[in-house]
Structures are given as C-alpha cells and as structure tokens.
C-alpha cells in the first residue's frame, strides 16, 4: 500500500506542468481571464420535465468585488451545440450574444455550416433578455416557449482544487475529510436557456457541447 502510494506520488510529479484548474476554469492561456473562457457546461431536464435546460458559465473565480464589473463581450458568441444522430457533428445550435444591455438568443436551428466558424442565425431569433445586474433579482424572459437568463450567479461548481494540486505536487498523500471547496464564495457569468425537448429533434439521446466564438 505504502509503495503504491509513493509510486503514485512520483508519477504525478513527472507530469510537468499538470495543474488542475477544474472544471474548465481558466484552462488555457488564450482564453484565461476573458469573456471567451467557459468554466462549466450543464444540461439537465427542467422543473417541467418536458424541457431541457442548458447552462454555459464563463469567467470563473470572480470575487464578489470583481463581479459587478464583469461583463459579457459583444464580440464573443456563446454557442450550444447539439448532435442528435450520434456523429458528434452539431445538427442544431443555440446561439447567445450580447448587444447593448441585452442577451439575444437564436435557435435551436440548424447551423449554417458546422465546425469552428459560425455566423449568427439572425433569421432564427428566439428571444432576448435584459442582462441581470449584480446584486439585483434575476431577470427572466419567456418567449416562444423558452426561458432566458444572462448575468452573474454563484459558481455552481465545487471541488477541493487546492488540496488536489498539493497531491499532484507530491506534498499531500490524499484528500482531507471534509475537504475545502476552492470555488466557495466565487461567481460566474451565466447564460441559461430552457427549451422544450420537442425543439431538440426526435432522438432519445443527444450529444451536447458549448463553444465560445469570437468575431473576426
């Protein structure tokens, strides 16, 4: 037992530069600290189980002091990709992008072209919502059977990241019990949309991923 633990520690140390910034918070240099950084993606059935909820969180680890000034970027589109035939190519997209003080939503609609490059599906606008302000009640819009929210929320992610990095560094043998939630007391900018399942195609299962896309 002792031996394998030591071997584990050594093997972790040999991974140069492996630092967990889970879930996806500040995961890569090009996006860290800007509006394009996705921290987490959630997909779950709504309170009304006829609906599916998609959550895309960006700009993680915001302290309360930093949250009021954190803002969505008009040049960064948030795109929820939905594959409904199992080939990992998006058949439908839901796009969200800020203009002035609102977040505008498009889709679910077939993308113009799948892949890394997109245009806003302006003919498929499904609704918009005023971006909620820090410290105020959430503003929720309901249009076309869908619900929309955009603004600061508590980061729903939880993980003892600090202890895990110590384990990776070889300075701790394992997790503490209880652990310490590194993400406690921090916020994200959330984009949340609730959609009737009937708008997501006829398949029983779908594959979902989120992307941020920047205007060229």
């Amino acid at each position: 037992m002792k031996k394998s633990k030591i071997a584990l520690g050594l093997s972790l140390i040999t991974i140069t530069g492996l630092v967990f910034m889970a879930a996806d918070h500040a995961d890569a240099p090009a996006v860290t600290g800007n509006a394009a950084d996705i921290t987490d993606v959630y997909a779950f059935q709504g309170q009304d189980t006829n609906n599916m909820v998609f959550v895309v969180n960006t700009q993680g680890l915001l302290t309360p002091n930093a949250t009021a000034s954190a803002a969505f970027n008009e040049n960064v589109m948030i795109e929820i990709n939905i594959d409904n035939n199992g080939d990992n190519v998006e058949d439908l997209v839901i796009q969200a992008i800020k203009r002035n003080n609102k977040m505008y939503f498009f889709g679910p609609v077939a993308p113009g072209t799948p892949g890394i490059s997109s245009m806003v599906k302006t003919n498929a606008m499904s609704g918009s919502v005023d971006i909620s302000k820090y410290g105020s009640a959430p503003i929720i819009a309901t249009e076309n059977g869908m619900k929309f929210f955009a603004g600061p929320r508590d980061d729903p992610f939880f993980f003892d990241l600090g202890r895990f990095n110590s384990i990776l560094a070889g300075s701790a043998p394992g997790f503490n019990n209880p652990g310490t939630d590194t993400f406690a007391g921090t916020n994200v900018l959330a984009t949340i949309v609730e959609v009737p399942k009937s708008l997501l195609g006829s398949s029983a299962t779908i594959n979902v991923w989120a992307e941020t896309k920047k205007k060229q």
Binding site: A23, M77, S117, S118, V120, E211, Q216
Partner: peptide
C-alpha cells in the same frame, strides 16, 4: 460577421 471558435467544453475538467 464570422465568429471563430475560442473555447470548447462538454464534460467537466
């Protein structure tokens, strides 16, 4: 305009 992928994510971490 044309928007190009910056970040991608599905499963956590």
């Amino acid at each position: 305009g044309t928007y190009i992928q910056q970040d991608q994510m599905a499963r956590p971490a």
